[in-house]
Design a protein around this nucleic acid. Sequence first.
DNA 1: GTTGGCACTCCAGGCTACCGAGCGCCAACG
DNA 2: CGTTGGCGCTCGGTAGCCTGGAGTGCCAAC
Lengths: 331, 331
Amino acid sequence: MLDDRKTAILSAVVQEYITTALPVGSTHIADAPGVHVSPATVRNEMAVLEQEGYLVQPHTSAGRVPTDKGYRFFVDHLVVPGVLDLATRVRVGEFFGSAHGRLEEMLYRTSDFLAQLTNYAAVVVGPPAEAAVVRSVQLVGLSATVATVVVVLGNGSVESETIELTPGVSAAHLANAGAHLAGHLVGSTLGAAGELMPSGDAVVDALCRQVLDSVRTRSSDEHLYIGGTSQMAASFDAVEIVRDVLRTLEQQFIVVSLIGDIVQRGMSVAIGGEHGVELLASCSLVVAPVVVDGERRGTVGVLGPTRMNYPQAMATVEVVSDQLGRRLEES
Amino acid sequence: MLDDRKTAILSAVVQEYITTALPVGSTHIADAPGVHVSPATVRNEMAVLEQEGYLVQPHTSAGRVPTDKGYRFFVDHLVVPGVLDLATRVRVGEFFGSAHGRLEEMLYRTSDFLAQLTNYAAVVVGPPAEAAVVRSVQLVGLSATVATVVVVLGNGSVESETIELTPGVSAAHLANAGAHLAGHLVGSTLGAAGELMPSGDAVVDALCRQVLDSVRTRSSDEHLYIGGTSQMAASFDAVEIVRDVLRTLEQQFIVVSLIGDIVQRGMSVAIGGEHGVELLASCSLVVAPVVVDGERRGTVGVLGPTRMNYPQAMATVEVVSDQLGRRLEES
DNA sequence: GTTGGCACTCCAGGCTACCGAGCGCCAACG
DNA sequence: CGTTGGCGCTCGGTAGCCTGGAGTGCCAAC
């Protein structure tokens, strides 16, 4: 595809641009490791790289800047799986060692932590509730027309939902339905639980179905935790981009489906326009699935400018997702 | 304090600056309502207003810009409690009419809604858990060493906390403690519940105390919901300010205590430096308590630039807090 | 006290010039 | 034939200069 020298040059351009954010000229690259030729030669090669779409010039006679395709080649072929520096590994270890408390809180703090490590915004998609074992189901009446259903899951998360009661449902109905549901669900997962047994009371059965529907709907949408928006703001200098990114992050379902899409396609990095979300065109996303007991349970990732530090981001995301998975395995 | 004409001039300057964001010159307000004098006279008056600290010039021979003190006078003496336009009132009505579901979700959606109405960032501080009536307490063991306590409150919110069990606590202990706590707490508020009765079992009593402590600690900190950070980003044009504001918002406890402080002092508007939070020096905060059954239960507010549209923001915050209070009364 | 007039100040925007970084091309070299 | 040094060219960025306009402060006159 690209010969060794072009590869070395592309790599040097990407790395230089990542650190300086300035278009990279031939002389800056001439004696980079793996290159060591005259600037003139570098220019010739760069012209080719530009024709092939790996680099662009902001204007004639300026230095070169990597394109999305250039970054793509870089992450696919040139990022060595490098080990994270010791200090960071220690910090990660300490963080997860002392992490405790409710699942939701831990996930939020993880996103914040990841943002601090990378200096980009970080996202954590929580484990879907439907995959966790139900430990308890409870139906609590709040008024004549409103009740709350509370489901406690084995991974430490608690899902609750408010439901409107149809008139004629009494406290006894609620209690029966609660017991019936508990018998049906406790010990299995929300996703796997089969059809509900009839209880012998039509009102109770209808109520159970209503509760189950409402819980199922909710439990299928994944929770999103976003940290480090301020670091994101710091890595762009155009306020319009910051606004666009924030606007996108506010619509959590976009982000969740975007991340789901990336992971589904087996990718770990989405660069610039690749993901197809207009407002995030100047961003890249580095993600890694969180694996618990051999299955994917959520995702962690960082969101930064396309000129983000991919090696560092990838390594950090990798370590954090791994540790988070282990942490979740314990419970 | 200020004679009528100075007052009218100050008011005109503030309003003009709010809409244009440009320093205001004497000719622009010479024939504003309540002024109607020549530019020269306006200039004389403006010079006095500047000496007294209500206005500043960005540089010699530029127009005037209000100071924090100028805004303060404006909101204290010149904002007529004006009624919100009909369209907005209708929107608010529709919003709360269709609001349902979990308390947390509704509060989040409220903050988002308020942000859209005002075009500033919006904050909602949830009702403190300790003031709500406990409807159910449940203790669920997750493993030999971890349990979750779930408290369902009368206002529809659900508080949960994970606790570490001391070795030797059995499932039976958990069940006993759960029942004991339920008997103690259900029907009263977390804040008001008195001393725990001894149950006759030392292990159970210790466990109950542990749970109660942990729930009490958590229930005293108020939950914060922030919406419309993107609108905030749009109203500043310096990316550093956006970053600073985001950084502050990320540390929720700062915002919560700031808002609590403002409300406590009986204020509804904090302008620029008044609140003492360095990073928010170029922001103003308009807040209103949410009153449920005659008592303060949370707060709503908006956070915008010091040159925000105070009349509109104040009216909107007022209406939303009022409607939210009514909505919460229903449950 | 209010007003028109006048001189002054300062910013914003446009214009020019210039410098430097960078490129492409080409001829020469090994 | 790939590599290299050289040369001319092209831009962007910065600095300097000018000018127009908006605005002020002051003063004298009403």
